[in-house]
Design a protein around this nucleic acid. Structure first.
Lengths: 215, 215
DNA sequence: AGCCTTACCTACTCGCGAGTAAGACTACGT
DNA sequence: ACGTAGTCTTACTCGCGAGTAGGTAAGGCT
């Protein structure tokens, strides 16, 4: 049971504010129990509002769920988009992207859970919402990788960079799970870990070669 | 809707056989709809059996779900366990482990979906089932990594190898998702991809250094 | 033959939770 | 003062699906 935020039901707030409260509550509850086990009653209670308002403002349960996914996906993608400035070196861009990713997750644990765990598990109408943002993130990285290899002996084609980028995103998602169980680590420490793994590879790390940010 | 396997309800089969049929059906249905959206009615129908038999043999819905997770987890862990023979070099062990992992997934898509997507999403009693096997896989790899660095300049401690192994497992899981959408690739090709990413790292790949199996 | 165990079924109960009907209160414009 | 637009509620309906009561048939064993 997600805690009711005991406020004495502030009255007659404008729609925009209510919609934010509802989305916040819904994200909490969906993250805690999953889509099906979450009840509209609980969401309305946590939001400090009655059920019909839920339906009036954000529609049926599945529409509400989609709205949650969308909001979180947009937040994340925009955060990454602004952090990865054009003109930087590929390594630097990747490093910044990773860092802001871990920072987002840290400040938005429930949102991340909905995005990552729930959207994935609930099958078609929803998982494609997720796929969309994941593809954008993957494309971003794949392009970055392609650009990094441009001048080299063996430039990578999309058929190479795409699975590589996918695996990288997956590694990031898994590291986040691990992080939840080891919260003593800082966000940029986590980003460093992943950066080293991906950029240097294990055999380099064994030999003592590692990647470090310039700044 | 998962297809009913139209056989005319073979009668009076021994319990062990029915239990296998039930588990097979349950895995299919859970993979298709997720835990909550899957109905016991549909499972019984797909299994070619009536609902009370389900309850008599494998208990309530959550017990059945746990039974599915357990069976799939055991299958996978045993497959990997036999493939990774002691005495081989760490790189070779990792390579074999990865290959057998992708082979398992290929022949057992629904089982993998239940394990990976569903168990993860359904919160506590279930996700810890998953965590257990994942930890075993991660420990296996972490140990392998530790052994690989034993003699080197900077031997890795558990605090290093554990997140690395976690990320590796996550990368594998993500690559499987990608594979589902690009089924034209072979299992050992996928294993190679991951092996190269993890063992060599991106900067090596750019320079044209890559890992290849000896056999 | 009779009896018991095990496989198996039809046909229910019953609670939970999605979604709604119908109206109440408040603020503001005119 | 009074309409009206927007906020908000209580108190329902109703279907779906988990779980069960109670009974039938088939084979084995003495």
């Amino acid at each position: 049971m997600v805690q009711d935020n005991g406020r004495p039901r502030s009255r007659r707030l404008p729609r925009a504010v209510r919609e934010r409260q509802i989305l916040d509550a819904a994200v909490q509850v969906f993250a805690a129990h999953g889509f099906h086990a979450a009840s509209m009653d609980e969401i309305s209670e946590v939001a400090g509002i009655s059920k019909p308002m839920l339906y009036a403002y954000l529609g049926a349960k599945d529409e509400l769920f989609v709205a949650c996914i969308r909001r979180e996906a947009v937040r994340l993608i925009e955060a990454i988009g602004t952090a990865v400035e054009a003109g930087l070196s590929p390594a630097e861009q990747l490093w910044r992207g990773l860092r802001v990713f871990f920072e987002y997750v840290q400040e938005n644990q429930a949102g991340w859970t909905v995005l990552h765990r729930q959207a994935n598990a609930q099958g078609e109408p929803f998982s494609s919402e997720l796929t969309e943002w994941r593809d954008r993130a993957t494309d971003l990285i794949a392009e970055l990788l392609a650009r990094a290899t441009e001048g080299s002996a063996q430039p990578m084609q999309a058929e190479q960079t795409e699975p590589f980028a996918t695996a990288l995103v997956g590694a990031g998602e898994a590291l986040v799970e691990w992080w939840f169980e080891h919260p003593e680590h800082a966000a940029d420490g986590m980003a460093m870990r992943l950066m080293n793994m991906v950029w240097m590879g294990f055999s380099d790390l064994v030999e003592g070669r590692s990647w470090t940010p310039k700044s």
